[in-house]
């Protein structure tokens, strides 16, 4: 099976004055293509750092990160931008939509710049927002805004979809719907999806589960028969 992500001996340290904080401490793992992976851990475990490095938004202190055959840990700033542009879809806890752009335009903002985009309207239909194309983010609920963000990430037709606490700002029901959408995308479109969360109840829904603690991988589990997010409660 093709490897989507291979991380080898990854270290990320932040130097703040005289103290050095090790956010990620010598971790290694591999993810096959098309899997729904969850990185689980408490605040400060280093899970977001891993995600940011995977997304080309941060660079490792040492170690190697290979995404679909590209060793992004060796990329220059410009190459990282190109990588983000062509290969990564990112979903944030706080949506980060452009307030001045309508729903459709927000998606087009992303699809416009990548080589092989999906049709913005179709993607928005997938996330169930066909009726809200002309609305502005301020006119949408949190869940709807997050759907726009997911649509924006998807429209780029990325190799890998990275989601940082995508339900952190949403209520229980809406959160579930968003997670269901993400896992559907993974299964139907064969996209590699990595979700970072602190919610351990989601553990059984993942194909691959990474439990992180203090910058290290505590446990790496694969699950042949993941549950649907509708079957778990928290």
């Amino acid at each position: 099976m093709e490897t989507a992500v291979r991380i080898t001996d990854l270290v990320k340290q932040y130097t703040m004055g005289e103290t050095t904080i090790t956010a990620v401490d010598h971790i290694s793992f591999e993810l096959p293509v098309g899997k729904y992976a969850i990185i689980l851990g408490a605040s400060g475990a280093g899970k977001s750092t891993v995600l940011n490095i995977l997304g080309g938004m941060d660079t490792p202190t040492s170690g190697s990160v290979v995404v679909r055959g590209n060793e992004i840990s060796k990329f220059s700033k410009g190459k990282l931008t190109k990588y983000r542009r062509d290969s990564v879809g990112f979903v944030f806890q706080f949506y980060n939509l452009m307030p001045n752009l309508s729903v459709l335009e927000n998606v087009e903002l992303a699809s416009e710049i990548c080589p092989d985009p999906l049709d913005a309207r179709e993607v928005l239909a997938t996330v169930g927002l066909s009726e809200r194309l002309k609305n502005f983010p301020s006119q949408l609920s949190g869940g709807e805004q997050q759907r726009v963000a997911i649509a924006r990430a998807l429209a780029k037709n990325p190799d890998i979809l990275l989601c940082d606490e995508p339900t952190g700002a949403l209520d229980y029901k809406t959160g579930k719907a968003i997670l269901a959408l993400l896992s559907d995308i993974c299964r139907e479109r064969k996209k590699t999806v990595i979700v970072v969360t602190h919610n351990s109840a989601l553990a059984p829904t993942a194909d691959v589960l990474l439990r992180m603690k203090s910058g290290q991988i505590e446990r790496f589990e694969t699950n042949e028969n993941p549950l649907s997010v509708h079957d778990v409660e928290w």
Binding site: T81, R84, R85, D86, N96, N100, A110, I113, K156
Partner: peptide, 16 residues
């Protein structure tokens, strides 16, 4: 600044 950062994450080049 948030919009700017978002554009950067989306892979917009500096000149864009």
């Amino acid at each position: 600044i948030r919009s700017l950062a978002t554009l950067m994450v989306l892979g917009f080049y500096d000149r864009e």
